[in-house]
Design a protein around this nucleic acid. Structure first.
Length: 252
DNA sequence: GCGACAG
DNA sequence: ATCTTGTCGC
């Protein structure tokens, strides 16, 4: 069990949060290709909320990039530290995500986020922010185009089209399944766009979303339900504090 | 000013 | 994100 406290100096207001993004975006590294797709480890992170009970649960699931089998996983539960504001998602999700990542029993390798990296109003979305704070290579795979525009990619799996902010390409709309709505991939930190696309495709052999986000989504939802149940059980005394759990897949 | 808007 | 049953199709 680890603690999920809010990082020191975490912004309280939208103005502070935007100032943090403006200051940190200069630290994003864009000239590294990142780990080769299909090798090493890839970690998916996701967060689930219960605003009623002021609970947030994050999960980190480490997969073997070649087999897509789960190598390790961890969860972290805490209190909501920031409201959802378009463009400031990282301030709502990162405290719990960072806690989950820190409680992993092994290195995460490439981190795949549920959201955007460079495809962001100030070019500093969740995946870039996570990358800068942890130093880890990171990419963003989102389910919606946010405020960006794109032309429909060809229907075949693997085809993609530029995700545009005006005339600037901030990512790609990538088809992971034939004739199914594309996912929106953008670079986070220390990974090239070409590799971000290759990783995403390799992680989504059967479903629209990468296995990393599917596994992390399922795990954080379970963790949230358990936390809500415990909250009710304890009558919300001191609150179930903020904790994290992790486990390693058995080596057979 | 109004509407849109990752999760 | 979350509220939510069944249903159409491979």
């Amino acid at each position: 069990m680890t603690t999920v406290g809010v990082p020191a100096g975490w912004p309280t207001t939208e103005e502070e949060a935007r100032a943090v993004q403006d200051e940190l975006r200069g630290r994003v590294v864009l000239d590294e290709p990142g780990p080769p797709p299909g090798t090493g480890r890839v970690t998916g992170v996701d967060v689930a909320y219960d605003d009623e009970r002021d609970l947030v649960a994050a999960a980190a699931v480490v997969l073997d990039a070649a087999s897509l089998e789960v190598v390790a996983e961890s969860t972290a539960v805490g209190r909501v530290s920031f409201p959802y504001v378009p463009g400031l998602l990282a301030f709502r999700e990162l405290p719990a995500v960072l806690a989950a990542l820190e409680s992993l029993p092994c290195p995460p390798g490439l981190v795949v986020c549920d959201g955007y990296g460079l495809a962001h109003p100030r070019r500093f979305g969740l995946a870039s922010h996570l990358g800068v704070l942890t130093g880890l290579p990171a990419i963003g795979v989102a389910k919606n185009p946010f405020t960006f525009t794109y032309d429909e990619p060809a229907p075949a799996r693997g085809s993609s089209a530029p995700l545009l902010a005006g005339a600037e390409e901030v990512g790609r709309a990538l088809r992971t399944r034939d004739a199914v709505k594309p996912v929106f991939v953008s670079v986070g930190h220390r990974v090239s766009l070409a590799n971000a696309l290759a990783h995403t495709l390799a992680l989504a052999p059967a479903y629209r979303l990468p296995e990393t986000t599917r596994r992390a989504d399922g795990l954080c939802r379970r963790a949230l339900k358990e936390a809500a149940a415990e909250e009710a059980r304890e009558g919300a005394a001191d609150g179930p504090a903020q904790s994290a759990t992790s486990r390693q897949a058995p080596t057979s």
